[in-house]
């Protein structure tokens, strides 16, 4: 019989406590290329209700000082919730979905 060396099992003190991930680092991952349709903002129909912002699952509606200013196309997945929720002005929506061009 050859010598079999059994490695000593690591004790709990030798194991890493946990994995650490950098906060908010997912922003470096661009999910914008998932999109088949993109939302387009029409400022003249916008009443700044911010419903698009509050219902966006991807934090992709850019709001500065309480005003909607456009979309973050690097992360927007093109679900279209913003366009559905947009009440618009006098029935004219301030967000419409357009097909992505190649």
């Amino acid at each position: 019989m050859a010598d079999i060396k059994v490695e000593k099992k690591k004790g709990w003190k030798d194991l890493p406590a946990c994995d650490y991930l950098e906060a908010g680092s997912a922003a470096a991952f661009e999910t914008g290329d998932w999109r088949s349709e993109k939302p387009v903002w029409i400022p003249e129909n916008c009443i700044q209700c911010l419903f698009c912002w509050v219902y966006c699952p991807d934090s992709s509606v850019i709001v500065k000082d309480g005003q909607m200013t456009g979309f973050d196309y690097k992360h927007c997945k093109g679900c279209g919730i913003c366009a559905t929720e947009c009440p618009g002005k006098k029935g004219n929506k301030a967000i419409k979905m357009e097909a992505e061009k190649k």
Binding site: A26, A27, T31, C49, L50, P57, S59, K74, H75
Partner: peptide, 22 residues
Amino acid sequence: LKELSKRPELLSGGHRLCAGCG
């Protein structure tokens, strides 16, 4: 909503939930 929009955004974009995920 205006007050909420001025608070820091604690969930960044770039996560891999489905498009339109609740």
